[in-house]
């Protein structure tokens, strides 16, 4: 087990974005999180990565209690995350975007250059090395955001809706990269996606969040047969039509 949340709740004023969320992520797996809009998926990421602190509950990463730590401390411990709204450092080159991760998250000193080159190579970004991050298309932006996370040398990578806005071919390519990171580096991956099909495809296990609460956890085929999940997703389908 690499990550565990114990009865984690988060309220924004009257809105209860997370209610007693229990989740365990095993070392080396790809763990999917799904749920309709506003289910609390991003909030869960924010609470784990230290962007917000939870209203109650406990978060344990590799046996350490990280509930009250700041975002940068959590990163130093080996956990990195991407954002739903793609974030890069637009005025920096792709290389320097990774340099931020490697310098501050990595604590690696002389190995820095090597780590960046390796990460660029691993994600096929070498040809973009000197490009300015503001000049990249959406797909490459998302890759660079993820590459900067990997450059920290994280053992747990959390991806918040990395597939949103991508074309079908890009989605497949991206998932391929995620599998490669998981397989090649042995990095545990936590991935949010609200389209179930893509998530079922890539996840070892998954969790469904609805109105801030966990409604189902398990292997993808179990989860998508769960009546509560079907109800939530059919409900959402009707709403959007």
């Amino acid at each position: 087990m690499i990550l565990e949340t114990k009865k984690v709740s988060k309220a924004f004023g009257r809105i209860e974005a997370l209610i007693d969320v229990n989740m365990t992520v095993r070392k080396g797996e790809i763990f999917g999180i799904a749920g309709p809009n506003g289910a609390g998926k991003s909030t869960l990421f924010n609470v784990i990565s230290g962007t917000f602190s939870p209203s109650s509950g406990q978060i344990v990463f590799e046996g350490k209690d990280i509930t009250k730590l700041n975002a940068h401390r959590i990163c130093h411990l080996g956990l990195a995350r991407t954002f739903q709204i793609p974030q890069t450092f637009p005025t920096l080159s792709v290389y320097d975007n990774l340099r931020v991760g490697a310098t501050f998250g990595g604590k690696i000193g002389r190995e820095l250059e090597k780590r960046i080159q390796e990460t660029l190579g691993f994600l096929n970004l070498t040809s973009f090395r000197d490009a300015l991050a503001s000049n990249l298309d959406l797909y490459t932006t998302k890759l660079v955001m993820m590459a900067a996370c990997l450059a920290t040398g994280c053992r747990l990578l959390m991806l918040d809706e990395p597939l949103a806005g991508l074309s079908m071919t890009e989605i497949n390519a991206f998932l391929e990269v995620v599998r490669k990171i998981n397989g090649g580096h042995g990095t545990t991956v936590l991935i949010i996606e609200h389209i179930l099909d893509s998530l079922i495809d890539v996840s070892d296990r998954m969790l469904i969040l609805h109105n801030g609460a966990v409604i189902c956890v398990g292997e993808p085929n179990e989860v998508c047969q769960d009546p509560k999940v079907i109800e939530v997703y059919l409900g959402e389908g009707e709403d959007s039509q």
Binding site: T51, Q87, V100, F104
Partner: peptide, 21 residues
């Protein structure tokens, strides 16, 4: 210097990459 550009460009992302503001 790198930290400052990063914080200016995207504060949240910089912090989650380990920058101690």
């Amino acid at each position: 210097g790198l930290a400052f550009v990063a914080l200016r460009d995207s504060k949240d992302f910089a912090k989650t990459l380990g920058v101690n503001e």
